[in-house]
């Protein structure tokens, strides 16, 4: 205990402020460096290149009759493609003037009014709304209904009633021809 490694009493306080500066600046640089070195580990949790590579989906629209819907998978998520009827389009346009929690015009949510393309994931907590298949509940507004917490979407996929805060999102997509769309 008494043999070694004890500080000589005289070497104590004298240059306290310069020592403190060194100590604090060294510790700060060290802490910032350590924090920055954590970034690659965090970033490794972000989508990997192969996940990102699956970022587009192409769909042939020809077999979808008016009034029918199909669900395709894009980035692992269901995308609803609905060939809307004339009545549904009229209803959607008429509802532009209704009280909408997340206001959006029907015209801004489609490229061609006949085709409604949107991500079929409820904006509340991520369940998949019903209304794609024949016989499934379509909710109070003739569009889609989420069974998890009761959100109702209209014929333009806009939220009308229930806990979801936003409309069903419209993904980036383009018409490659009259009967072919590329999503993503």
């Amino acid at each position: 205990m008494s043999d070694t490694a004890s500080t000589p009493p005289s070497a104590e306080i004298d240059e306290q402020t310069r020592r403190d500066f060194l100590l604090v600046s060294t510790a700060t640089v060290g802490a910032v460096g350590t924090a920055l070195s954590l970034w690659p580990f965090v970033n490794s949790l972000n989508p990997a290149a192969d996940t990102l590579a699956l970022a587009t989906t192409e769909v042939n629209l020809a077999p979808i009759a008016e009034g029918q819907s199909i669900t395709v998978v894009w980035q692992g998520k269901p995308v609803f493609i609905r060939h809307r009827t004339k009545a549904e389009i009229e209803q959607a346009k008429a509802d532009d003037a209704a009280a909408l929690p997340d206001p959006a015009k029907d015209a801004d949510r489609v490229i061609k009014p006949d085709w409604l393309v949107m991500v079929g994931v409820c904006t509340h907590l991520g369940c998949i709304p019903l209304g794609q298949k024949e016989g499934e509940p379509k909710g109070d507004f003739g569009g889609w209904f989420c069974p998890c917490h009761g959100s109702h979407y209209d014929t333009s996929g806009r939220i009308r009633k229930g806990p979801a805060p936003l409309n069903l999102p419209v993904p980036t997509y383009e018409f490659q021809s009259d009967t072919q769309v590329k999503i993503g």
Binding site: N46, P47, L125, G126, C148
Partner: peptide, 25 residues
């Protein structure tokens, strides 16, 4: 899905945070 989607409620960074949690979409 439901529980990780809770984090999407966080303003601004919510969506990116959920993508980070999932490691995908």
């Amino acid at each position: 899905t439901v529980i990780t989607n809770l984090f999407s409620a966080i303003p601004v960074v919510g969506e990116s945070l959920v993508t980070l949690l999932w490691g995908g979409f």
